[in-house]
Amino acid sequence: MPGPHTGFTSVEDVQKKLESVDYIPSREIATVVFLAAATQKPILVEGPAGAGKTELARAISRCLNLRKIRLQCYEGLDEAKSLYEWEYAKQLLYTQMIKEKINQLIATADTIAEAVEKIAQQENAFFSERFLLARPLLQAITSDEQVVLLIDEIDKSDPEFEAFLLELLSDFQVSIPELGIWKAKHIPIVVLTSNNYRDISDALKRRCIHLYIDYPKKDLEKRIVKLKIPNIEERLADQLVNAIGNIRSLDLKKRPCISETIDWAKALMVLQINDLSPQALSDTLNVICKYQADTVMVRESMDKVLK
């Protein structure tokens, strides 16, 4: 049964709560989110760019009122940038400032060995949390309340980083050599996203539950558009969603995503266009297409798009 920390009580509850923060999930999304939260497993979300992977994490954090911590992955990301780093400059500054105190401390020492011993006793003062610069992963682990941890575009990171994540995602603990092992105070809700630039290792996949988010079906997308722009006309929304669906089926460099559908709807509203004519589409095309070649292709297959 659901653990004490989860904010969701059932699949329907997930659906309702996500909808309350303007995210309309499919049945599958709701089920997976519920299961992940209830069993404290990370979710690995795959899907085309702009289908709402990152938005899902944002919506979960908003509807449960949890802080969201985001880690953007890229090639060359390492522990120092993702987990923690010692603040050398601060440590140095402090040693300078408390020089006198240190001198006092070792004033009574007769030999150098004794002085070293005395300073060593104070080591803890320098390798303490005060001088630790917490990066996103450590922040998520040590936070006093539960957080949503979003690890974005995990496929862009190096295999080494992926391996390093394993300890964190299975036991929710990190080991810092100077301080020992830190266990998470609250197990965060972890969402990993991937664009499938490369395949994720089996070991990491085993620790997550998997979710594939595709572009929404037409009626779902229409609901999303109407949710974001309440005063859009029924007929225009229909035409819009239909056209976007057709544009996505073209062989484009970059297919328009949900946020572009919404931007486009907004643009049409501002221009007070109530009927999607070829002229209107052609005029507003640069909202949807981000490459010149794509614009040309949509213009060429205009009648197919507006069918």
Binding site: T31, V32, L35, A38, T39, K41, N196, I200, H210
Partner: peptide, 29 residues
């Protein structure tokens, strides 16, 4: 994991049953 998950969902609803199975057994597109 899957057995644990199935205890939590309504197995008579096929969409939920299938999602739970799929999320655990098929880990990539």
């Amino acid at each position: 994991d899957c057995a644990r998950h199935l205890e939590m969902v309504d197995v008579l609803d096929e969409a939920q049953f299938r999602s739970a199975l799929r999320a655990n057994f098929a880990k990539s597109r």
